[in-house]
Nucleic acid binder design. Structure first.
Lengths: 226, 226
DNA sequence: TCTTAATGTTACAGAAATATTACAAATTAA
DNA sequence: TTAATTTGTAATATTTCTGTAACATTAAGA
């Protein structure tokens, strides 16, 4: 079950793109191109999350934000702010305007989607999948814990992300490049062979008590979760 | 379900040929004969892949490429570059202009089609068929697995590619040269007889438990999948 | 049947890909 | 700050794959 998202943003092209893609992901989406109306519609729509432009023709994003926070029904509505580059990100960040996250335009939809899910995961865990499982492997994204056959496993941050990645698409083979792109922070340059080492570390951690190997090496192609 | 492909290429005859054939394969295709307009239309069209001419009357392919890579919404749009022979292929190859693949004119539609699918398979796996079957043989391109009568078969990389190749056109006889060209990485020189050995290895792997031979030798011509 | 060209089979050495280990630098926790 | 953990890489070990050559077998025409 997916949630409802409301967008207040005056650039129609952005709204269109984001709305379309979010709907494709199963969210129910509604939007408004200006602040005052948006505020009203939003309260009727009762979304699980709001995407809010920082600079609007009528009301500023921060005013909307304050308005929302004053309304007891929406006090805890998660808000992700959309800001243009240079629009004093620091202020937004520092100024605790009650924003849950913000993203700088231009952004890729994937990045936005990831942030939306991250925020929803905290605020409204039922909307977003928080547990990934495969066979006797379980990963809890909220608590950041991993279990194999109900026995907890300790993983470093990178191994955690790596396993999380494999769990989103079990059985599928990923090349080292694909793994790098997705698991490592953008623009980080790491040797492709480095992945082998992390695979080894992950293997070592999750293959407890002689249980069966869960990571498959596919020569010349990459790795997969069995 | 097939995806959307956009073409920017000034030779109308090429556009026509490619567009027509791609549509026949089920793709939704749109095109433009020049760079600047193409760039605009492309962004409206939101394709899953772009075929881009290297030499255009107004903008060079590489400029378009850069423009696209700067636009966060299209940063990861797969691009296949179309180049005339002699147009410094090396540069395109080396110069990491963010191109996913390139093909030299004149090309056969089949070759283009194969490359398009290969690229889409990485970027957008749901668009392309990922399973090849023939009789009781099954090959899964995503999981990189091969089955005969539901029993998994272990193949080395080359044998996998070889079988994949045969499965795209069962019953058709391929000469050793054709096999070499398609299955082996470009510019690799291998003895033609080497194929015999790989055929043997493939045969040995897929003919389990006395099941019937699936690879046919056509004397003086080559091999085929029955 | 003999001859010959084409294909099948085998074994093996070198190449290529992956696994493993150790370690120093970077990061985080105490 | 110091200690502990985590990371990336390089060096080394191990495994698996590849291509080829040498020899065996088969098919087809003379």
């Amino acid at each position: 079950m997916k949630g409802k998202i409301f967008i207040i943003e005056d650039e129609a092209s952005i709204v269109q793109l984001v709305q379309h893609n979010l709907e494709k992901e199963g969210f129910v989406v509604s939007s408004s191109l200006n602040g005052n109306e948006g505020l009203k519609e939003l309260k009727k729509f009762e979304p699980n999350l709001l995407l809010l432009d920082w600079m609007l023709p009528d009301l500023s994003g921060i005013d909307i934000c304050k308005n929302i926070r004053r309304d007891s029904n929406f006090k805890s509505l998660p808000i992700i702010m959309l800001t243009a580059k240079g629009e004093e990100e620091d202020k937004i960040k520092g100024l605790e305007s009650g924003v849950d996250d913000y993203i700088t335009k231009p952004f890729s939809f994937n990045e936005l989607s990831a942030r939306i899910k991250a925020v929803l995961r905290r605020s409204d865990p039922n909307i977003v999948a928080n547990n990934l499982t495969f066979e006797d492997l379980k990963l809890d994204r909220i608590e950041k814990r991993v279990f194999r056959s109900d026995k907890e496993i300790q993983l470093g941050p990178t191994e955690f992300r790596l396993l999380e990645f494999f769990l989103t698409n079990p059985k599928r083979v990923y090349s080292r490049d694909q793994i790098l792109e997705t698991v490592w922070p953008n623009n980080v340059n790491v040797e492709s062979r480095t992945i082998d080492v992390h695979i080894r570390r992950l293997r070592q951690s999750i293959n407890i008590e002689g249980k069966k190997e869960l990571i498959r090496t596919v020569r010349a192609s990459g790795y997969s979760l069995i």
